Computed example of a mutant assay.
Amino acid sequence: MTDDQPEEWFRNSSSTAWGFLSAGAAIAIIVIDAATGWHPETTAGGVLFALVAYAAFFRTKVGVSEGDFVLHHLYSTVRFPMAALESVSVGRTLGAYAGGRTFVSGAVGRPLREAVKGAKREHKPLSNHADFVEDRLNGLAQDARDRRGIKRDSDEQFALAEDVRRSWDWPLIGATLVVAVVFAVLLVL
């Protein structure tokens, strides 16, 4: 069911920086190889590295779209109604809880030093990205429940959690597999 839920996406800013560095490294490897005497296995390795970097750093994100809580993973997308979301907590990774299940995403997380502090650290949603995402998603879930008139931890909420949908990014999976096979064959030859 689509409701008046605003569309909002959250991405860890360091993932984007690492993504650009990885893409730049892959392009540099391919260009340097082409300039110094082309080796097909190096080019295939660079393309494979770029595809995996894209999946890991640019594709992964967490958000709300069309009334659903959405987790974009490396090669799949999980979505379920926002009102089914019981809670979100962010440690090294984001953990979303719905219907007795935990859905994890590495798109948003805390640095190791901050995650180790746990409850001892200050909660600063205005200056800390992970705190902001945690508070915002929990607030959006409560708003979605309020709009539908559903109480937290009710049977209605658990029934909504049964509407978990996973879809696969087959073009990206196919491209990665083809390049990986080409790379492996070129290494053996």
Results as ranks from 00 to 15, higher is better:
A141M: 08
A159S: 14
G63I: 05
V182S: 07
A50D: 09
R79V: 05
E8T: 12
R11V: 13
R148E: 09
T16E: 12
D153F: 13
F49P: 03
G95P: 00
Y54C: 04
E114D: 14
N12R: 09
D3W: 09
F57E: 00
A115M: 08
Y75G: 05
V185L: 15
L48M: 13
R113I: 08
R79W: 05
R110Q: 14
P81R: 04
R79C: 03
W170G: 04
Y97Q: 11
W38R: 06
V52R: 01
S13D: 14
D143S: 14
G45E: 01
D33V: 08
K117L: 15
L71F: 06
R165M: 02
T2I: 14
A119L: 11
V188L: 15
T2Y: 05
I32W: 14
F132N: 06
G24D: 07
I29H: 00
P6A: 08
F69M: 10
E162F: 03
G19S: 03
H73W: 01
S89H: 11
E41C: 05
R136V: 03
G37W: 02
D135E: 14
L137Y: 07
K120V: 05
A55K: 03
G63Y: 06
S154A: 10
A175I: 07
R59Y: 11
G19F: 02
Y54V: 03
